[in-house]
């Protein structure tokens, strides 16, 4: 290293008043693709991170069908038809709430700084998390439905209605992902994110029509379950799989999903931009 090597590298002179370049939608799609690949490779490198997606639906099904099923409904088969469609929704919720924990630990390492010093759209990092999460949820839904069918679930409509139920659960789950990301970026540690997530999940999950009909609940709880979007989601999935009325509850779920996304997605992106 000597003075002779100091020949100035050429730097493109920037017009002083030029606005910053915009990153086009095609470039952003490429970035989302590259980052989604990263997220999937992380799962491949750490298969244990799929345990929740694989085991939780099976454990929930076994637990509720065999422990509570007999006590709640005249036959176990009836309870399977009642409860499993609702499990679709709660599975999506559970997986979605785990996203924030992962995002929070990303911030604890230097990786996020690296991404943020690259010329990519800020939303690409979040959207790629979302994409990987959708794939995880689809795996989980497949396992749930396959397992439930083995122990007796009957699809009383057709594949299209079943897919609609899956799509609806996925859509609702993805709107919850934004809330989880907000928590992940607002709380200090992965443990805190997990704790708060549990506080959100528990009342929503059990204060709903997923596991038991709401008729025997006290009035205040019935009111809560009525407005709980998870009840609407469970009712909609039940309708779609068991061939009962579903259009009203589907509409409610769609409205909830769109509303949650419309409010929390911009907040999450803004939070991501601001986060230092």
């Amino acid at each position: 290293m000597s003075a002779a090597t100091l020949s100035p590298a050429t730097v493109k002179p920037a017009p002083l008043n030029a606005d910053d370049v915009r990153i086009g939608p095609r470039a952003t799609l490429r970035h989302i693709g590259a980052l989604t690949r990263r997220n999937l490779m992380r799962i491949k490198a750490d298969p244990e991170s799929m345990l929740d997606a694989v085991l939780v639906p099976i454990i929930f099904t076994v637990l509720f069908i065999y422990v509570f099923g007999g006590a709640m409904f005249p036959t176990r088969a009836q309870y399977i038809q009642y409860m499993v469609p609702g499990l679709l929704g709660t599975t999506g919720l559970n997986l979605a709430m785990a996203v924030g924990t992962g995002l929070n630990s990303d911030f604890q390492t230097g990786v996020m700084d690296r991404f943020r010093t690259l010329p990519i759209g800020r939303s690409a990092v979040l959207l790629s998390k979302m994409a990987a999460e959708m794939l995880r949820a689809l795996v989980s839904f497949t396992i749930l439905i396959t397992f439930a069918m083995i122990i007796g679930l009957e699809i009383k409509t057709d594949v299209l209605h079943l897919l609609a139920a899956v799509g609806l659960s996925l859509m609702f789950g993805m709107s919850i992902v934004w809330i989880s990301m907000l928590l992940g970026m607002s709380l200090s540690s992965p443990q805190a994110v997990q704790g708060v997530s549990m506080l959100v999940i528990m009342p929503l999950q059990f204060g709903s029509s997923i596991f038991a009909p709401t008729g025997t609940m006290p009035g205040w709880l019935q009111t809560f379950t009525e407005y709980n979007p998870l009840s609407a989601l469970a009712d909609a999935c039940r309708g779609l799989i068991n061939g009962e009325a579903f259009s009203h509850s589907v509409l409610i779920v769609v409205i909830w999903s769109v509303a949650i996304t419309a409010v929390t997605a911009p907040l999450a992106v803004a939070r991501f931009r601001k986060r230092t």
Binding site: K12, A14, D19, D20, V21, R22, P119
Partner: peptide, 13 residues
């Protein structure tokens, strides 16, 4: 490199 940290972050990156 001639880019403003505040106004041209993407080019700067």
């Amino acid at each position: 490199g001639g880019y403003d940290v505040l106004r041209q972050p993407k080019q700067l990156r």
